[in-house]
Simulated scan of single mutants.
Amino acid sequence: MKQLCSISFILFFGFPVFSQETAEEIIYDKRDDHIESFPNRVTTRLFYINTSNSFNFTDKNSRDAVRLIPNKQDRIGASVAFRNIAVSYSVAPDFLAVNKDNKHSKLFNLNLRAYFGKWMQTLDLYRQKGFFVEYETISPYYPEMKSFKIGGATSYILNDKFSYRAIASQDEKQLQSAGSFIPGIVYYYTKLNINMDSLNQEFHLFDIAFSPAYHYNWVPAKNLLLSAGISAGIGLNHSTSEDESFTSLLTELNLKGSFIYDLSNLYTGLHYSYLILNHNTDRSTYIKDNIPFFQIFIGYRFKAAEKLIRKADKINDKLKIKSE
């Protein structure tokens, strides 16, 4: 896992764009009235990420609240992507102020995305160690408290004129404003180890919700993209601990916003999102599960070498992957 924290490879989830150009012609750019795509370009990116997974527990009777806040680590890194393969490297350097006193805390985060026609699949993974426990005016630190979360969403993009790739991976560019209704299913599994003083308890949380969403890409100028989206879902949570198993109503809210400036093949921008999952863990305790995510990036798209393109086409032929 430590190695994955440094080098994450995306083989299944990535940016699938398949082509079968002839030897006489390599297509680097395709466009229609609304979307421009870059099927044979290598996409590179430098990025800064701030994200974490925190938990708010509230007693339904007394209204007392306890917040479990991970000792955050900001990361910087680089990524290279071509077709359906991407490789990234990220570190948590000490020169970033938030990392100077991390008290042996650990954070591993992986966010993957794939497209299959109109279908979009995401996968999120968070592994954290070291939490502050905020209660009233005190916030002691517990280095052995841990959490693990894995899950994601399966979504369907209804509007062909709307490009989610223009927001997420920049292997497409939105040329005219467009929006889309995107129904989906959201699901997560969370393991929370509360290890503090005399309390040592483990929770297992299972979430699933139907989550309709709407996203809009606004193109106010030729190379500028402003995007906003919201999803609001409802479903079920099943929580288990040593003392009790409990099933309750789950609500999901996810707010997203992006700013991207894309000049020729040079692009820069930022993403922000905030996911909130609300449910009970037992008959008397209410939990708010929060995942904020912030990223700043700058990148460039290079023409892939002909040998790389031919090699990729041969692999597609062997795997019987058809052109899109």
Score class of each variant (00 low, 15 high):
273 S>D: 13
273 S>I: 02
273 S>N: 13
274 Y>A: 07
274 Y>K: 11
275 L>E: 02
275 L>Q: 04
275 L>V: 02
277 L>P: 07
278 N>M: 11
278 N>P: 06
278 N>K: 10
279 H>C: 09
279 H>S: 12
279 H>P: 07
279 H>Y: 15
279 H>E: 10
279 H>V: 05
279 H>L: 01
280 N>M: 13
280 N>Y: 13
280 N>L: 13
281 T>L: 07
281 T>H: 04
281 T>E: 04
281 T>M: 02
281 T>S: 02
282 D>N: 14
282 D>K: 08
282 D>V: 04
282 D>G: 00
282 D>M: 07
283 R>D: 09
283 R>A: 12
284 S>F: 11
284 S>P: 00
284 S>R: 09
285 T>E: 03
285 T>H: 02
286 Y>C: 03
286 Y>L: 14
287 I>K: 10
287 I>G: 10
288 K>M: 15
288 K>P: 09
288 K>N: 13
288 K>E: 15
289 D>K: 05
289 D>M: 03
289 D>E: 13
289 D>Q: 06
290 N>L: 04
290 N>E: 10
291 I>L: 01
291 I>N: 12
291 I>P: 05
291 I>Q: 01
292 P>W: 08
292 P>H: 04
292 P>N: 05
292 P>A: 06
292 P>F: 04
292 P>Q: 08
293 F>P: 07
293 F>S: 02
293 F>V: 05
293 F>T: 05
294 F>G: 05
294 F>N: 06
295 Q>Y: 08
295 Q>S: 14
295 Q>P: 08
295 Q>E: 15
295 Q>H: 09
295 Q>V: 12
295 Q>A: 12
296 I>N: 07
296 I>C: 12
296 I>M: 12
296 I>Q: 04
296 I>W: 10
297 F>C: 10
297 F>D: 08
297 F>N: 01
297 F>V: 15
298 I>S: 14
298 I>T: 11
298 I>P: 00
299 G>E: 01
299 G>W: 01
299 G>Y: 03
299 G>D: 04
299 G>R: 02
300 Y>D: 14
300 Y>E: 09
300 Y>P: 12
300 Y>K: 15
300 Y>I: 12
301 R>A: 14
301 R>F: 09
301 R>Y: 13
301 R>T: 07
301 R>P: 07
302 F>T: 11
302 F>Y: 15
303 K>V: 01
303 K>N: 13
303 K>E: 05
303 K>G: 07
304 A>K: 12
304 A>E: 09
304 A>G: 11
304 A>R: 09
305 A>L: 08
305 A>K: 06
305 A>V: 01
306 E>D: 15
306 E>Y: 11
306 E>N: 15
307 K>G: 11
307 K>S: 15
307 K>Y: 08
307 K>R: 12
307 K>V: 10
308 L>R: 15
309 I>G: 03
309 I>M: 08
309 I>S: 05
309 I>D: 00
309 I>R: 01
309 I>P: 02
